[in-house]
Computed example of a mutant assay.
Amino acid sequence: MQREEKQQDAVLEAIINKVNDLKTSIGAMIFKVENEYETLNWPSFLDNFALISSQLTSLTKILSNEKAPPLRNFTVLPLLLKPDLDENLARLTDGRLNTFSHDIVPDYLRTKPEPDAELKMMTLEHKASCVNYDTAQKQVAAMNKVVGHVWDIVSKARDEWDGDASSRAGGAQTSSIADTNCLVAAISLGKGLKHTVPPPGMMGGPPTGPQRGPGALGPPQGPPGGIPNQMGQMGKTPSAIKTNIKAAGQIHPYNR
């Protein structure tokens, strides 16, 4: 008896731990659905669902283990019923159950469905047993047809959504990164700019030589005031100027 009780206590402790982990995962999933629905994506939701599924699988393995005693052979009986507030019970149930009274015990320690639910299940089972094979096959075929039609609609809508997303992502480009970089380099660094000298007469100054019309007579006239045109000799140094360069040490007034 002591060995069986130890096994029962160990199994119950493992079951409680797994149930607490499952409760935490379900609470986190509900919190995300209620508070993070704007940023919640489908892969994250599937990850939470996969975690809950794995925890349920672990709980099922514990219950089906050979060393685990068959819990269905045990009966849970309330030791104390009172309508007063029980702080310990509220702490164990996270505030969901504050009292353990006569009205709550039949619902929480029930081993069979409620009478109304059990009556509905018996009615449906009796109705299903009265349907012959051909009628059942026709109903199954009709249900499969409806499900297939809904599946086609969902698949078509998904393809349209994917096409719209790809078309928005690959739209016509209205700018060029290379041209933008060239413009920035030309403005800030002057890269790619060329310096060109305009031809004579395009600078806005006086013409370099006398201009005569086609009907002008007589010798060409010089500039006003009789100033000779020496534009061609502006860049030449007169040869009559002589220079005498001496060493700095010979002409320094403070040379000792």
Rank of each mutant, 00 (worst) to 15 (best):
T180R: 12
K120S: 11
T135C: 10
R110P: 01
T93H: 07
R72C: 05
N144D: 05
T180D: 10
A165C: 05
T75I: 14
T111W: 02
N88M: 07
S175N: 07
T180N: 09
A185I: 01
K112W: 08
T111C: 03
D152M: 01
N88S: 09
E125K: 14
A141R: 10
A136L: 13
R72K: 13
M143D: 12
P70H: 07
G190M: 05
A141N: 12
S101A: 15
F74P: 02
K112I: 11
V147F: 01
M121S: 14
A186E: 10
K138W: 00
L109T: 06
L119W: 08
S101F: 05
L89Q: 08
A178K: 13
D134W: 14
N181P: 00
S155N: 01
P69I: 09
E118C: 04
N73P: 01
L124G: 04
T180Y: 09
H102L: 12
F100H: 04
G171K: 12
V184M: 06
K67W: 02
P115A: 15
G148L: 04
T135Y: 02
L63P: 03
I62M: 02
Q139M: 14
S175M: 08
K138V: 09
S176N: 13
G163K: 10
T174G: 09
P70W: 01
A165K: 06
K67S: 10
A90E: 12
V105N: 05
V154E: 00
L71T: 09
L89P: 05
I153K: 13
H102R: 12
G171N: 13
K145T: 03
L80M: 06
H102K: 15
L63S: 05
S101M: 07
L124C: 05
R158D: 00
I153Y: 01
N132M: 10
K156Y: 02
I104F: 03
D159L: 01
K191R: 03
F100C: 12
Y133S: 09
N144F: 03
P113Q: 12
W161T: 04
I52R: 14
D86I: 07
L124Y: 11
Q173D: 11
N98R: 08
R72I: 09
K82L: 06
L97H: 12
K120W: 08
A157K: 04
Q55S: 10
D116M: 06
D162H: 04
N98M: 11
L119E: 15
S167F: 05
P115I: 12
K120R: 14
S54K: 15
S101K: 14
L89N: 10
Q137A: 14
A178H: 12
A172T: 11
E125N: 13
R110W: 02
